[in-house]
Design a protein around this nucleic acid. Structure first.
Lengths: 164, 164
DNA sequence: ATGTTTGCAAATAGTTTGCATCCAG
DNA sequence: CTGGATGCAAACTATTTGCAAACAT
C-alpha cells in the first residue's frame, strides 16, 4: 500500500497550480500527481496507470493519460524526450546536438563548439556504460510559432490537451 | 522523382557496413539508407515509408521498419530521443539533465554543475523559441548490463533487431 | 543452392475521442 | 446547481510477428 509519501510542499504546489489554472482538484488528479512525484524514472502514461491501480483500483487509463497531458499543458509537469515509442532515426552517428520542436516533433541537428567539450562526470561513467552524449534544446520552431498548423513534414505532431 | 543524391562516400560506408555485418545489400535497404541520409529531420519509420513509396512503390512498411531497426542495431544509424509517441512525464520542471538507458528505456535525472552554465548559441535563440535545455546521456544502465533481461520497472523496453 | 530478406496478413500495443454520468466548487 | 472531470466503448495510430515466396550471394 504505497502511501502518499510526497512532501507537503509538493502537494501545495499542486493545489496552487490547479486553482490558478481552474483545474478541479479531484482524487484522481491528486493521486496521479503524488505518484509521479515519487517516481524517479519519468514513467509513461501506461506505467503510471498500472502503478496507480494498486492504490486506486477504479481509475481508468483514459483519465490517467488525459490528466498527464493536462498537467503538461499547464506546466505542472514536463514531457521528456525518450527513445521508445515512435522512434526517430538519425543517419548521422557522429556526435552532435539536437533541437526538438515540442510542437511538430521534428528534430534538427546542430553543431556548437562550446558544447563539444562537455565531459561526463566520473561517478556516472563508472555506474553507466555511456554510449553517447548531447545537448538537447526543446523549442518551438519558426514554422510552428507562425502558423498554428503543424508543418507538412511533421508526422502527427504534438499532444492535445484537455483544457482549452 | 527525388534522385538518390547522397554522396558516394555514404553509399560506400553503407556497403562496407553491410559486408562487415553480413547484411545483404538489397534495393530496399539501399533506398532506405539513401533516403535517410538525405533527411535533415530524423524521420520516423512511418515518414520514411511514406516518402520512399514515391520512388519505390512496391516496398512495405514492415520492411522499412525492420530495416531501420536492423541498421540501428548494427550502428549504421542511430535512434534518437523524441517527445512524441510513448511519452514520458517528469514531475521536476526545474532544469536538470537526463540519463537514458537505451535498453530498458528508463530515464534518470542527474545534476551536474559543469553543465548548468551552458548557454544557447545566439543564432539559435533568435530562430527558435527555446523552452528548455539539457544534456542527455545515452547509456546502458547497470541492471541492463548485468541481466540481459529488462528491469521490472521498465515498460516494454527497447527494440528487437532482425539479425541475431 | 541456401539462408536471408521481403511482403502479406493479422496480432499486438499504445493513444485518443464521443458521450453519458458524476462530482467539485 | 453547473460545468468540468471521469469512465466506458470504440476508433485510431503505430509497431511487431509468423510465414511462404523471392532474392542476394
Amino acid at each position: 500500500m504505497a502511501e502518499v509519501d510526497i512532501v507537503q510542499g509538493d502537494l501545495e504546489r499542486f493545489f496552487a497550480f490547479c486553482r490558478e489554472r481552474n483545474l478541479k482538484i479531484t482524487p484522481q488528479r491528486t493521486a496521479i500527481y503524488s505518484l509521479l512525484k515519487g517516481c524517479p524514472d519519468h514513467p509513461s502514461a501506461d506505467y503510471v496507470y498500472r502503478r496507480i491501480r494498486k492504490d486506486f483500483p477504479g481509475i481508468s487509463f483514459e483519465t490517467v493519460n488525459r490528466t498527464l497531458l493536462t498537467f503538461a499543458a499547464v506546466g505542472l509537469i514536463a514531457i521528456v524526450e525518450s527513445t521508445t515509442g515512435v522512434r526517430r532515426f538519425d543517419p548521422d552517428t557522429e556526435s552532435h546536438h539536437h533541437i526538438h520542436c515540442v510542437r511538430c516533433g521534428r528534430i534538427f541537428d546542430f553543431r556548437h563548439e562550446g558544447y563539444d567539450g562537455i565531459s561526463i562526470p566520473e561517478n556516472l561513467s563508472e555506474e553507466f556504460t555511456v554510449i553517447d552524449k548531447r545537448v538537447v534544446l526543446h523549442v518551438i520552431c519558426p514554422e510552428c510559432r507562425n502558423q498554428n498548423e503543424a508543418h507538412e513534414s511533421s508526422d502527427h505532431a504534438g499532444y492535445r490537451m484537455t483544457t482549452s
